[in-house]
């Protein structure tokens, strides 16, 4: 048996050889990053989980032909990015209808849960400020065009190199850098009120 620090590629090769346990390990390692990436892309928890299931199912189905030519995470996020972009494009009109009917930020996430009495009496003001700040960041990211959003999320959270992100998005490295620059320019403007404030107190 392999030691604790089995690489993704080693695990995937074992999955290819028929070891279900190795697949469970890969799933455990990547389900949270994949779900969070998809959640930030599609803005809906249930849909993000459904897509994540599809991502891992596709990995499982493709195990027979797996060749360790690229990083496992690059391959994984390429599948996730494809599914996310297709999903966002397919449901764009539907999403627009929802955003008109539903005030921004009040998603299914339950982040806007009612405050209990104790919280209300304690520090309602600070809570509201944090809520507004968090909502502002989330909405600014959500408003980015989907390809820019995917680029920002993969760059910021998944520790993929420019080359790996470019492969996931099927664009050149140069095009990726332009995408990222435009996205950060937009965020810099949209988040201008927060940009000058420095990091959140206590974080």
């Amino acid at each position: 048996m392999w030691a604790m620090a089995q690489t993704d590629v080693q695990l995937m090769l074992e999955v290819k050889a028929g070891d279900e346990q190795s697949f469970a390990l890969l799933l455990h390692r990547y389900r949270s990053p994949v779900i969070n990436f998809l959640y930030r892309m599609v803005r809906n928890r249930a849909q993000a989980e459904d897509l994540a299931q599809e991502v891992f199912l596709r990995v499982y189905r493709a195990r027979g032909g797996y060749e360790p030519s690229a990083k496992f995470s690059t391959w994984l996020f390429r599948i996730a990015t494809n599914l996310a972009l297709n999903s966002v494009r397919d449901t764009r009109h539907q999403k627009q209808e929802i955003s008109i009917e539903q005030p921004a930020g009040e998603t299914e996430e339950g982040e806007e849960r009612p405050l209990d009495v104790e919280e209300r009496s304690a520090n309602i003001e600070q809570h509201l400020v944090e809520e507004a700040r968090s909502r502002m960041i989330r909405e600014a990211v959500e408003r980015l065009p989907e390809k820019q959003r995917a680029a920002v999320l993969l760059h910021k959270y998944e520790e993929l190199s420019y080359g790996e992100i470019a492969k996931s998005l099927r664009c050149s490295e140069s095009a990726l850098k332009s995408l990222l620059f435009r996205a950060y320019e937009t965020l810099r403007v949209e988040l201008a009120p927060l940009v000058g404030q420095g990091p959140k107190a206590g974080s």
Binding site: A24, L27, R31, S32, I35, N36, Y39, R40, R45, A48, E49, A52, Q53, F56, L57, E109, E111, R133, S134, I137, R138, V141, V152, K156, Y184, L187, R188, L191, L194, V195, G196, G198, P199, K200, S203
Partner: peptide, 22 residues
């Protein structure tokens, strides 16, 4: 500063039945 703000994005956890469903 923007990069720092992105760190504040909330994370979600997989729901309980995720693994079993998969």
């Amino acid at each position: 500063a923007v990069s720092g703000l992105l760190e504040e994005m909330p994370k979600i956890m997989p729901t309980e039945g995720f693994d079993a469903r998969l």
